[in-house]
C-alpha cells in the first residue's frame, strides 16, 4: 500500500475556510485512499469538513497531508492544487 506525506503551505488568502474545506472533502471522497490532515499537533480525518475547520488553517500556514491507498499520489496532487490556489474560493 502506498503511503505519501506532503507538507503544503496554504496559499488561499482566506485560509482553509468552509468552502475549500468542503472541496477538500469532495476530492477525498472521490478517491479510495485514507487521507488525514495535520496542523501542528492536531490531526483530522480528511473526510470531515468539521474536522478540517477545527484546524483554523490560515493563509501561509503549513499543513501536512497524509494519504494511504492505491490512489494516494493522485489524491495528494489534487489536494495540493486546491490548497495552493491563490484565488479566493
Amino acid at each position: 500500500m502506498v503511503k505519501i506525506q506532503k507538507e503544503i503551505i496554504i496559499r488561499n488568502p482566506q485560509g482553509l475556510h468552509a468552502r475549500p474545506s468542503a472541496m477538500f472533502v469532495q476530492i477525498v471522497s472521490k478517491h479510495e485512499s485514507i487521507v488525514t490532515l495535520r496542523k501542528g499537533d492536531e490531526e483530522v480525518n480528511g473526510r470531515s469538513i468539521m474536522g478540517i475547520l477545527t484546524l483554523g488553517a490560515q493563509f501561509n500556514s503549513s499543513v501536512v497531508i497524509t494519504a494511504e491507498g492505491v490512489d494516494a499520489e493522485k489524491v495528494i496532487c489534487e489536494l495540493e492544487a486546491l490548497l495552493k490556489k491563490e484565488t479566493p474560493e
Binding site: 475547520l53 477545527t54 483554523g56
Partner: peptide, 17 residues
C-alpha cells in the same frame, strides 16, 4: 476580515464535533 471569521468557524466546529 479573514482572520476572525476563520477563527470563529474553527471554534464552532470544535464545540460541535
Amino acid at each position: 476580515s479573514a482572520g476572525p471569521h476563520l477563527k470563529a468557524l474553527a471554534k464552532i466546529s470544535r464545540i460541535l464535533k
